[in-house]
C-alpha cells in the first residue's frame, strides 16, 4: 500500500514499466505550467515554474527579467509595443 500522504492530488501518478515486465506507479509532484506571453503565446524566459508560495521566497530579480514588462510580455511583444509608442510620439514631435 502506498503511503497515505501520496493520496494527495498534488501528486501525479506515473505508470512505469520495470525491467521485470511489471508496471508500477511512481508519484511525482505537480509543477505549475510555464508562463506564456499573452500577445505572442510563446513561453516566457526568466520566469521560474513554481507555486506562488515557492516564487514568493525567491529574490525579486530571480522571478522575472530586468526589463519593462519583464515576466509579462515576451521580448518580441515588448519591442513591438515600444515601436508603436515611438510612432505615436512622432506626431507630438511635429
Amino acid at each position: 500500500m502506498p503511503a497515505r500522504r501520496l493520496r494527495s492530488r498534488s501528486f501525479r501518478r506515473l505508470k512505469v514499466k520495470l525491467p521485470g515486465n511489471r508496471v508500477t506507479i511512481h508519484y511525482r509532484k505537480r509543477v505549475p505550467k510555464a508562463a506564456t506571453c499573452p500577445v505572442t503565446g510563446e513561453k516566457l524566459h526568466g520566469v521560474p515554474r513554481g507555486t506562488p508560495g515557492q516564487l514568493h521566497k525567491l529574490p525579486k530579480a530571480q522571478r522575472r527579467p530586468e526589463r519593462p514588462y519583464g515576466g509579462v510580455l515576451s521580448s518580441k511583444a515588448m519591442r513591438e509595443e515600444f515601436r508603436k509608442e515611438a510612432r505615436g510620439m512622432e506626431l507630438e514631435k511635429r
Binding site: 530586468e66 526589463r67 519593462p68 521580448s75 515588448m78 519591442r79 515600444f82 515601436r83 509608442e85 515611438a86 510620439m89 514631435k93
Partner: peptide, 13 residues
C-alpha cells in the same frame, strides 16, 4: 537624431 530604445532594461527610454 532622437530615438527610443526598444530593447533591454533601458527599453522605452
Amino acid at each position: 537624431r532622437l530615438c527610443l530604445k526598444i530593447a533591454g532594461r533601458d527599453a522605452g527610454k
